[in-house]
């Protein structure tokens, strides 16, 4: 009995993983083949990118300020407070910027994607799209997918710049590190490769969030409860996958 249940669970798990994989392949295929719904793409860039800018700004500022404060006292113990600039910058550019931006976008825009597509599914709007001879992937999923890839690196860049400035306010204005030291050491230790690696991460998170969140909405259960469950699952799964993929990329890239 136990083995049978275990087998059934494994088969269900495999089937769902396969379906998630196929969803990505289908989305990718339609994303790289014309036609592209350009107006939808712009709308999604505005929604995922522009409308997330404020929350990214605030998160970046506070993260940078905390890093400045924590970093200063930790580095000061070893007499290396002068390295606060590169510490803040590298932590943000290589790790915290891409990951925290992705987590914030998941919470703000990813959940909305799942809810939107889920509601469209249960109210037969997706069937209506199909019956008009339109491809729901091209119309609903691809614009979100491409907008995520486009917007997330930009949001991450905002996060990093604001975070570095937050660290500057704390380190330089509050704790008295020299302005030249903060930025000078930063330019000595941060390389273009560090920035490129951060961009790789944010690009892949930009694809991951719409992929998982649209998938959860597309295969939503029944009724309002189904949508609420799918939304929660989308946020949890995306967040876990972001952290997992971050580890994989970090170990592969660095």
């Amino acid at each position: 009995m136990f083995i049978r249940k275990l087998g059934a669970l494994s088969v269900t798990g495999l089937r769902r993983t396969g379906r998630l994989g196929l969803f990505f392949v289908t989305t990718f295929f339609f994303a790289v083949t014309p036609p592209l719904k350009f107006s939808q793409l712009l709308k999604q860039i505005q929604f995922i990118g522009f409308q997330s800018a404020l929350v990214i700004f605030l998160t970046g500022a506070f993260t940078g300020m905390v890093l400045g404060l924590q970093g200063f006292y930790t580095l000061n113990r070893f007499g290396s407070a002068a390295l606060l600039g590169p510490m803040v910058a590298l932590s943000l550019i290589k790790e915290l910027g891409p990951v925290l931006s992705a987590l914030m976008v998941t919470g703000r825009a990813g959940s909305a994607m799942t809810a939107e597509i889920g509601i469209m599914r249960i109210t037969e709007q997706i069937d209506a799209i199909k019956l008009m001879g339109l491809n729901p992937f091209r119309y609903l999923v691809v614009p979100k997918f491409l907008a995520g890839i486009f917007a997330l690196p930009l949001l991450t860049a905002i996060f990093n710049v604001v975070g570095i400035f937050g660290g500057y306010v704390i380190g330089v204005k509050l704790l008295g590190i020299g302005e030249g030291t903060y930025f000078g050491e930063m330019s000595n230790h941060v390389t273009v490769q560090d920035i490129v690696q951060g961009i790789y991460k944010s690009l892949s998170f930009g694809a991951l969030i719409p992929w998982v969140c649209c998938y959860k909405g597309y295969y939503v259960g029944y009724g309002a409860e189904g949508v609420s469950k799918a939304t929660t699952q989308a946020v949890v799964l995306s967040s876990v996958l972001i952290l997992f993929w971050d580890y994989i990329l970090t170990s592969a890239l660095f």
């Binding site: 109210t123 709007q125 069937d127 209506a128 019956l131 001879g133 339109l134």
Partner: peptide, 17 residues
């Protein structure tokens, strides 16, 4: 898509956007 472009479907719920 061609077949569906000649087909109209009135859903029970309306299925309006």
């Amino acid at each position: 898509e061609q077949l569906r472009s000649h087909l109209g479907f009135l859903f029970q719920s309306g299925a309006l956007f």
